[in-house]
């Protein structure tokens, strides 16, 4: 079924309706992935920024190296270590949430400790499992490797998008209230701990799904920067979510298109586009008449 789609789009490209790069299947796949993952990143980003989970998200991304290694260890194909990735990253995410809630150390410290450990462990595991240090493999995991995006990845991404998207809509109001203030959420009958774990699972799925397009090192940027940029120019929650989604989708799609022009991993260009958008909002901020938010007021 996908092959028919590729032929169709490739046809349009060769006829000049679309840029010629779309004659290549991997670009079509990449663009489809970008359109699926963009909105998810933007949506999830609004909650991550509100709950101050940026640093936390980075740790999940860093777990990707270990995830790939473990997947390889269990015999998964090099380009499709789904179980290893999702499994390990979910374990890391849930464990860290557990430690965060129970430990007296500051969140910052806990995450800092785990962040480095997970990355080091990942490199170690990868070398052990593959018996050599293949820099290209590591590079692909850290910065994204569009070429290795398979149809399986795309199907997984499509399924994840629908499932995560629906669940995200379902819990959004509640998780936003928990993010705002957990004590108030509890007073209104919500279960902040359960909702937090639930959201962490959704977030991990989004992070892992975007690894091939953006890379483990940079996926954090796409979760945080569009939401941060949106914050500069919006005036309510509804706008916050939609502008964040628009920014992240522009970043992934336009970034991908531009990356076809340069020999630079797609992740880096996507990140650059999102950064440009962010700085753009900073400059436009006075135009949007941001009133009413003053730091330090109760």
């Amino acid at each position: 079924m996908l092959d028919a789609l590729y032929e169709l789009i490739g046809g349009w490209a060769s006829q000049g309706y679309l840029p010629s790069i779309f004659e290549h299947t991997f670009m079509i796949r990449g663009m489809l992935a970008a359109m699926l993952i963009g909105p998810l990143l933007g949506g999830v980003g609004t909650v991550v920024v509100t709950k101050k989970l940026s640093f936390f998200t980075q740790t999940i991304g860093n777990g990707a190296l270990s995830g790939v290694a473990i997947g390889l260890l269990f015999g998964e194909p090099v380009e499709g270590t789904f179980a290893g990735l999702y499994g390990f990253c979910l374990i890391v995410a849930l464990l860290m949430t557990f430690v965060k809630n129970r430990s007296r150390l500051s969140n910052d410290t806990v995450i800092g400790v785990v962040l480095a450990q997970v990355l080091g462990f990942g490199i170690f595991m990868l070398v052990v499992v593959t018996n050599n240090f293949n820099i290209h493999q590591v590079e692909g995991i850290l910065f994204g490797s569009l070429i290795t995006l398979t149809d399986n990845d795309l199907m997984a991404l499509a399924v994840a998008s629908v499932v995560v998207g629906l669940l995200f809509c379902f819990i959004f109001n509640r998780i936003m209230l928990v993010a705002f203030n957990p004590i108030l959420a509890k007073a209104r009958g919500l279960r902040p701990v359960f909702l937090e774990y639930f959201f962490i699972v959704l977030m991990t799925i989004v992070v892992v799904a975007s690894l091939k397009l953006i890379g483990a090192l940079l996926v954090l940027v796409l979760i945080v920067v569009p939401a941060a940029g949106a914050q500069n120019i919006v005036n309510n929650l509804r706008q916050f979510v939609w502008v964040s989604i628009v920014f992240s989708t522009i970043s992934t799609t336009v970034g991908l298109l531009l990356s076809a022009l340069f020999p630079i991993p797609s992740g880096a260009v996507i990140v650059l586009v999102s950064s440009l958008l962010f700085y753009g909002t900073l400059m436009l901020k006075p135009l949007f008449g941001k009133s009413g938010i003053q730091q330090g007021q109760v």
Binding site: T50, K52, F172, N173, R174, M176, L177, A179, F180, N181, I183, L184, A230, Q231, V234, N235, N236, L237, R238, Q239, F240, I293, Q294, Q295, G296, Q297
Partner: peptide, 17 residues
Amino acid sequence: LEFDHSVPITVCDFLSI
């Protein structure tokens, strides 16, 4: 009530959620 003052949430949003 501690909360992040920079989150773009209006009184209407607050009660809506």
